[in-house]
């Protein structure tokens, strides 16, 4: 077995200390070691975005990140995002737009939507589509997800 290492980082705002194997992915650490199952495994290869988390304010695929590399960083998962005002807005918008079907992809979309809005607070439809390119959804056909993010980016336009 690979070496075990103690790491310390901030997880959803709280300091976390844990031991991980050197070859473990951040996704495995979150789900199997820390029990945060909102972050999903969809492919393990960076292709689906179900495992999206934020590290130092930017989204990454947690399945591609070495858990040890979390040391000293600021990590946010869907559990953390959901407890923020933006997380609540996104949640409401996805729900109201019918953007959730099986829901397996949704936490990843939530995380990535946050990134899109950070880059483009008033994101255009095309910017949203490009921003969500790394997230696969097999159920919805994406339109309602795009609508939902658009509604958060342009709150007045959609409140008519």
């Amino acid at each position: 077995m690979s070496a075990m290492l103690e790491i310390e980082f901030r997880l959803n705002g709280v300091v976390q200390r844990t031991a991980v194997a050197a070859d473990m992915s951040a996704l495995e650490m979150l789900r199997d070691v820390l029990g945060l199952t909102g972050t999903k495994y969809g492919c393990g290869e960076g292709e689906c975005g179900a495992c999206t988390i934020t590290v130092d304010g930017r989204t990454v695929n947690s399945c591609l990140m070495f858990a040890v590399d979390c040391n000293g960083r600021e990590v946010q998962t869907i559990e953390g995002l959901s407890a923020t005002p933006l997380g609540e807005r996104l949640n409401h918008s996805l729900v109201a737009h019918g953007a959730v079907q099986c829901g397996f992809c949704t936490p990843g979309f939530m995380m990535q939507a946050q990134q899109v809005l950070a880059e483009h607070p008033h994101a255009s439809r095309e910017e949203i589509q490009r921003g969500l390119e790394g997230n696969l959804c097999r159920c919805t056909g994406y339109r309602k997800i795009i609508d939902a993010v658009e509604a958060v980016a342009h709150p007045t336009a959609s409140a008519e």
Binding site: G46, T59, V60, G131, E133
Partner: peptide, 9 residues
């Protein structure tokens, strides 16, 4: 290049 998540890493 890839996706937003991958470009970030």
């Amino acid at each position: 290049f890839a996706s937003s998540q991958i470009r970030n890493a």
